[in-house]
Amino acid sequence: MLSKVAERVYWTARYLERIESTARLISIYDKLLFDLPRTVQLSWYNLITINSLQKDFSERYAVQDERNVIKFLIGDESNYSSIVSSLKATRENIRTTRDVIPSDVWYAINELNRYVKDNIQQGINRGKRHEFLSNIICGCQQILGTLYSDMPHDAAWTFLRIGRNLERADMTSRNIDAAMAGIMEAQDIDEAVNTHQIIWLNLLRSLNADHSYRRATRQAIKGYDVVGYLVTNQYFPKSIEYCLNALISACEQLPNSENLTEYLDAIKADIVDDYEPESLGQPLRDDLNELQLHIIDLHKKISETWFPVWD
């Protein structure tokens, strides 16, 4: 398989995952804010912090309010992580890999692109935002479903898996980090306990993990159980452990992957095997930060292995 095609397929999966998780995050955040006691001042700006976009945001906007945050995350073409930018990038990657991607996926991304273009204002205004975002999520799911059902499980498929699981591990760690940050912010208020509950629950929801968490743990929502589930559950497809396992098994199917699987094993040992259930607060945030650095490194190693710059 051509290196360039592999690279584009990998990025297709990453961007697609990014679109979906951004849409989900915004729509859950909306609901979270409704649930919180009025004394708790959780800022929309947290969504910028989660994605490490503070610098880019400050270059474009002075006021850190809801409207600007939403505009930046959904419709801002100068933000390369926004939904419109990621959508555009997904579509360009699919356009240039049509030899390995099912046609229906090309049609679906065209439809989704058109829908977002025609309805972008709905996403920015609050009234129809939920509908707009859930249509985007549906569009992404349709594409994923088509890939699952129609694509041969060859090398191209393996690169899709790698892209998706890498991006997922990244997003899950960022989501946990954001929840932890929110909880640390709301430490000394009267409704602290209740507020923490709400934040943890919404963390699960933002990853579509609330039902499976309850079935798997048979526990009420408790901080360390939630984090433990999202880091070390081997069945939940967005948990860190699941993503790392998927990355390992995908890499093993590709040529010249020994260095990568070794590195992945090391990350897994570090983050998952050595996970301490009672670890919350700043130590947890430090661990997550370390994981994100690992993920950046992983991407570099993947590129060097399969998409090298040829002389």
């Binding site: 398989m1 051509l2 290196s3 360039k4 592999a6 090398a155 590709l254 040529p255 010249n256 399969w306 998409f307 040829w310």
Partner: peptide, 9 residues
């Protein structure tokens, strides 16, 4: 004088 594609392997 052969033409080659730059593949992942």
């Amino acid at each position: 004088d052969c033409v080659y594609m730059k593949n992942i392997d």
